[in-house]
């Protein structure tokens, strides 16, 4: 009976976590639409997520675009289809690479710091202190982060789109000897608004997921420094998995048959 008991316990724990997470998400989203708001804190989070993540996301995008051009060239040269490289680069970057890789980088950078900060506040009783000082911790800590994530990620990913395409352009023109004007013309001709829009919608959803997981794991962390460490790891891992999972769902919704 022992293995059964263990399976049952794991299953019940999973259900408990899923329920708690759903409640947390529901409460947080509801509070996003109810005043009071904390504009100063929201602004600080927006700068943290939008501005300070720019180098990380930009570097990710430029190298992703570059390697994509290089790899497609090796493949396409066999069919003399080198002309399609611009097409492949712009579609892959805007639809998938910029939002997904950018989202994963943000999960590592921002999700981790949110979990660590809120987790430390939990174990040092700062969250209890907020409650006793007439401040709802969900409104004060969680809502500004979620709104900042949802609003700022699309901007960040739009910039990543441009940088990623530029990376492909660099390799194509300076290494593979393409004509720059024709390359840009090809890029522009193949690009549909939906390609960019779908990527930005994904970015917004990923921003929500990263902020939600960072806040959730921080909020329920316990047990001192080790608990905060666990919360940070869980925040990054769960946000990354959810990003990949939701990426498929959203791709299916936008482009599925």
């Amino acid at each position: 009976m022992k293995p059964l008991r263990a399976i049952g316990r794991v299953f019940l724990a999973f259900l408990g976590t899923a329920g708690r997470l759903t409640m947390f998400a529901g409460t947080s989203v509801t509070h996003c639409f109810l005043p009071p708001y904390y504009p100063r804190i929201m602004l600080r989070q927006m700068i943290e997520i939008g501005y300070f993540s720019l180098p990380v996301v930009g570097l990710t995008a430029v190298f992703a675009g570059m390697v994509l051009a290089l790899q497609s060239y090796t493949g396409f040269a066999r069919f003399s289809a080198e002309g399609a490289i611009a097409n492949v680069v712009v579609l892959s970057v805007t639809r998938e690479l910029a939002p997904v890789l950018g989202g994963l980088m943000i999960a590592g950078r921002v999700g981790a710091s949110m979990a660590a900060e809120i987790g430390t506040m939990r174990v040092t009783e700062q969250i209890d202190a907020l409650t006793t000082l007439s401040t709802n911790p969900i409104k004060y800590l969680v809502v500004p982060r979620i709104i900042a994530g949802v609003v700022m990620l699309p901007f960040l990913i739009l910039i990543a789109d441009i940088i990623g395409v530029f990376g492909g352009f660099l390799v194509s023109v300076y290494k593979l000897g393409f004509n720059p004007a024709i390359y840009l013309q090809n890029t522009w001709d193949f690009l549909e608004p939906l390609d960019v829009i779908s990527g930005l919608v994904k970015a917004s959803v990923f921003g929500f997921l990263v902020a939600l997981m960072g806040c959730y794991h921080g909020y329920y962390s316990k047990g001192g420094a080790q608990g905060v460490g666990t919360a940070t790891t869980n925040a990054v891992v769960s946000a990354s998995i959810l990003i990949l999972c939701f990426n498929y769902i959203l791709t299916e919704a936008f482009f599925g048959l």
């Binding site: 506040m121 700062q126 202190a129 907020l130 409650t131 006793t132 000082l133 007439s134 401040t135």
Partner: peptide, 30 residues
């Protein structure tokens, strides 16, 4: 809770705010 003040074991000061804002937090939030 408005008529209750609490001194937490570790102080539980908010690290992101300067000391005076910590002290005045209840006044400002209310």
């Amino acid at each position: 809770n408005r008529q209750v003040g609490m001194l937490f074991q570790g102080g539980a000061l908010f690290d992101s705010l300067p000391v005076w804002e910590n002290v005045a937090f209840g006044l400002l939030s209310r």
